[in-house]
């Protein structure tokens, strides 16, 4: 089941590489994000899947379409130095595949990720925080300051976007005068 979905994701990404029309690329990106959300549900990451479906497939697609409207971008005109890029990508991929050979098998219960740190959270967090969802209790309680830092990042980027796009409106008004 997961393998089939992962293969579909790879096919969609392959189509995105070759697609020249930017609108089609953005729509394929939305399909890719929904497939990713489905894979995440299959991997038991329900909170992440909900966020990916709303933020990845929803908000990102809207932002990209808005940018396409503002830049009037339609077609990617040319491909630059594809051979060098291909060589670099394949070299990186080969190094990563070599590294993946040392990883434990998928869903091995004896893998270190399942035997260290996490049993403490699974056993104690309902007692300590009173929240049955462990993801929520870690995000909002144990690592609440990290989440505060995350909102700082979002605020900074929002301020940056407003600063960049406000200048734009002002310069257009001046040119109209």
């Amino acid at each position: 089941m997961i393998d089939v979905l992962l293969t579909m994701m790879a096919v969609v990404v392959f189509a995105m590489i070759n697609q020249r029309n930017l609108f089609a690329v953005v729509v394929l990106g939305g399909i890719y994000s929904f497939l990713m959300a489905t894979v995440l549900v299959a991997l038991d990451a329900v909170d992440v899947a909900m966020t990916e479906a709303s933020v990845g497939a929803g908000l990102s697609t809207v932002l990209l379409l808005g940018a396409l409207y503002l830049t009037k971008g339609e077609e990617v005109t040319e491909v630059r130095r594809p051979l060098i890029a291909l060589a670099v990508s394949i070299a990186v991929g080969a190094a990563l595949v070599y590294g993946s050979l040392g990883l434990p098998a998928f869903s091995d219960p004896q893998a270190p990720i399942h035997t260290h740190v996490v049993p403490r959270y699974l056993n104690d967090s309902p007692k300590e925080t009173g929240v049955p969802n462990v993801v929520t209790s870690v995000l909002a309680s144990y690592r609440g300051f990290d989440t505060l830092g995350e909102t700082t990042v979002v605020f900074t980027s929002g301020a940056g976007v407003i600063a960049l796009l406000r200048r734009r409106r002002r310069s257009r008004e001046e040119s109209e005068k």
């Binding site: 994701m9 594809p82 291909l86």
Partner: peptide
């Protein structure tokens, strides 16, 4: 290891697009 290898394919596909495509979007 199939899930790792699909992950790696997605990773290098993203890398390839960033290097080889000139359109900023």
């Amino acid at each position: 290891h199939y899930s790792y290898w699909v992950t790696i394919f997605l990773m290098i596909a993203g890398l390839f697009i960033v290097i080889a495509r000139g359109n900023l979007v």
